[in-house]
Simulated assay, not measured.
Amino acid sequence: MARRKLLLLLKPLDAYSLGSSSNGVSRLSNPQILHHLDSRNKVHKDVISFCKNILQKKFVDWEEILRDNLCYPVRNVDVVVTFGGDGTLLHASHFVDDSIPILGVNSDPTNAEEVEEHNNEFDATRSTGYLCAATVNNFEQVLDDILEGRSVPSELTRLSVHVNSELLPMYALNDILIAHPCPAEVSWFSFRIKKEGQPYSPLLNCRSCGLRVSTATGSTAAMLSAGGFQMPISSHDLQYMVREPISPGAASSRMYGLINPNQSLDIAWYCKEGYIYVDGSQVRYYIKHGDTIEVSARAPLLRVYLPPHLLGQGGSYFRRNPVGEKRELSKM
């Protein structure tokens, strides 16, 4: 049997250096915060070393690269293993196709007791690893299950975007946000839902803080925080929401909803400038007045080894209106 080849994608250690300036002098006066940042740095570094020691005992070869240095498509590896949290896994997802699975290792999990202890002093939360199947405690078992074929990656929907009929080079795993560069400015656009062989939905003209579209994976992130609803992670639908619409009136019920896999969201942009933000703020594409944008789920699926609590999700989608009533929107 051929040796398996892995790519290790590492969150950089300087991600935890917020407490120091370039000359090493502390910029923070609270010693507890400094201790917390130092602890995060050490935990992350120790986990990487521990997992590398495990890899040395396995029938694998690997190379490693810092997250910020990955800017090209990944080829010729069997698995990408990310060390960090969901942000590092998201970054990896922008550079792999549907042939290479990803295993996320949460290298710095939040400790509930630590958060409770420092709740009145500072934010002691650590890395979010919602999509990460492994931690330092179970890494070897998860890895063995993958290498011996006992674990199968799940297929997650990604989101594709065309601007003026040109496909953007990166697919979104979580969501996109289309908005004016200045958060205090109004975003002016219109959109409608298109389905092949059927008439368009009525045009909806919007002045708001922008438009967010998420996958099922991203429905637990910014979309949920904005008042959206959690979707089963296996769903191939997309969810959209107009952010803080100005005077929606009778059209308020059309300011959010679902886009089925055989549909697309067609958007016309009317501001002088704007951006399409992909999976957060680090990847963005400039748009201008008159540009047309098509958003759909017609993108290569992403294969991810998921934690057990995310497997086998199913059921209905619900969204709470402002008074708390649940309204069923769709079923799997």
Rank of each mutant, 00 (worst) to 15 (best):
T88W: 06
L90S: 14
L90F: 08
S93A: 11
F95V: 04
S99C: 03
I102P: 01
L103Y: 05
S107I: 12
T110R: 01
T110D: 04
A112Y: 15
A112C: 14
E113H: 11
E114V: 04
E116A: 09
E117A: 12
E117Q: 14
N120T: 03
A124T: 14
Y130E: 13
C132E: 07
C132T: 11
V136G: 10
N138E: 10
E140L: 13
V142E: 10
L143Y: 06
D144R: 06
I146W: 02
L147R: 05
G149M: 00
P153T: 12
P153C: 13
S154V: 04
E155N: 13
T157A: 10
R158N: 02
L159Q: 03
S160M: 13
S160D: 13
H162M: 06
H162W: 09
V163C: 07
V163L: 10
V163G: 03
V163K: 05
N164T: 14
S165R: 11
L167E: 12
L168Q: 00
M170P: 00
A172N: 08
A172H: 03
L173M: 13
N174C: 03
D175C: 03
D175H: 07
H180A: 00
P181S: 04
C182W: 07
P183R: 02
E185K: 10
W188D: 13
W188S: 13
F189M: 03
S190P: 06
F191E: 01
I193K: 11
K195H: 13
K195F: 10
P199Y: 04
P199A: 05
S201V: 05
P202V: 04
L204A: 06
N205C: 03
N205D: 11
C206D: 11
R207G: 09
R207Y: 05
